[in-house]
């Protein structure tokens, strides 16, 4: 009897504890959403002046803000594609072949993962400045590819470890050449790992602040636009856009959860 009572108490405490943690995680989100409905028009947009939906329409007139979000999307899509191709090829090559300097390449892969982002940011800035590369869209994409590739490789590599290479051999024995085998056999078998890696690369790119902050030149991404506006107060249309992005993201999660990356989803999300 006593034991059941005790278990009940433990359970109640753990439920309360979890609720507090979830509140901690979601309070800022609630603030963002609430402020997107705030009718205030004067900086720093902190006092509540009543409910309005205006910001969701005004948002579409703020070309600077939309432009920065457009940049973010372009950079995320291009660097995800590049990182996915380079990373997938690299993971397959490193898994299959022996070559000089493999250990060094492998060690270098961990650097962008463990080193503080600010160090990579200033290192890239220094390199671009020294090499005379004008900072902007191009340098942003290069920087994003550099920190996304390791994550793609780790995801694909996880998939490769349970990989049966006899199917590839069979394909070659049946007369398919190396290239055909790669696209028809290897890639399809690795798809869950590649998709997981690409999704991770995309989310890392879209949310990146620190590295972008150093290599952007005059180009503004959405996070950098937020950073700029923080000094004078974040206007409610930025909140409105954030809320819309969040909704889109949740829809994406629901969508992917219902079986696009079926079965392998957990592996992917634990890496995020």
């Amino acid at each position: 009897m006593k034991r059941i009572k005790k278990e009940k108490r433990v359970k109640r405490i753990s439920v309360i504890f979890c609720i507090i943690v979830y509140l901690y995680l979601f309070i800022p989100i609630a603030v963002i959403v609430a402020n997107s409905f705030n009718a205030t028009t004067s900086k720093p947009y902190l006092s509540w002046k009543g409910f309005t939906l205006d910001w969701y329409t005004k948002l579409w007139e703020n070309t600077e803000l939309l432009g920065s979000f457009g940049n973010t999307l372009i950079i995320a899509v291009v660097s995800t594609l590049l990182a996915t191709v380079i990373g997938t090829l690299g993971a397959v090559g490193m898994y299959r072949y022996k070559f000089k300097g493999k250990g060094i390449i492998n060690a270098l892969l961990y650097i962008p993962v463990v080193i503080p982002e600010i160090v990579l940011g200033i290192a890239l800035l220094t390199t671009f400045a020294r090499g005379g590369v004008p900072r902007g869209m191009l340098t942003l994409i290069m920087a994003h590819v550099s920190f996304c590739v390791p994550f793609v490789i780790f995801n694909v590599r996880a998939r490769l470890s349970g990989y049966d290479s006899s199917i590839e051999e069979a394909s070659m024995d049946l007369g398919a050449n190396r290239v055909v085998t790669f696209f028809e056999i290897t890639i399809p078998m690795l798809t869950p790992g590649i998709a997981g890696g690409a999704l991770l690369a995309f989310t890392l790119s879209i949310d990146d602040v620190i590295i972008s902050y150093f290599v952007n030149g005059q180009t503004k991404t959405f996070p950098l636009k937020v950073m700029e506006s923080i000094k004078s107060g974040v206007s409610p249309d930025v909140n409105a856009l954030s809320a819309l992005i969040l909704i889109a993201t949740i829809l994406l999660v629901v969508f992917t959860q219902s079986g696009i990356f079926s079965g392998k989803h957990k592996e992917k999300s634990t890496r995020r």
Binding site: C18, Y22, L25, F26, I27, P28, I29, A30, V31, I32, N35, L46, T203, D207, V209, F222, P223, V226, M227, I230, V234, V238, N239, S242, I245, L246, T249, I250, V253, Q257, S269, R272
Partner: peptide
């Protein structure tokens, strides 16, 4: 699964604006 996803979802919103949310709060 939902409990797990609820941990991840907040981190799909830009981290700067969430920290600014704390400052507002």
């Amino acid at each position: 699964k939902l409990l797990y996803m609820l941990v991840i979802i907040p981190f799909w919103t830009n981290s700067l604006i969430r920290i600014y949310g704390w400052r507002t709060f």
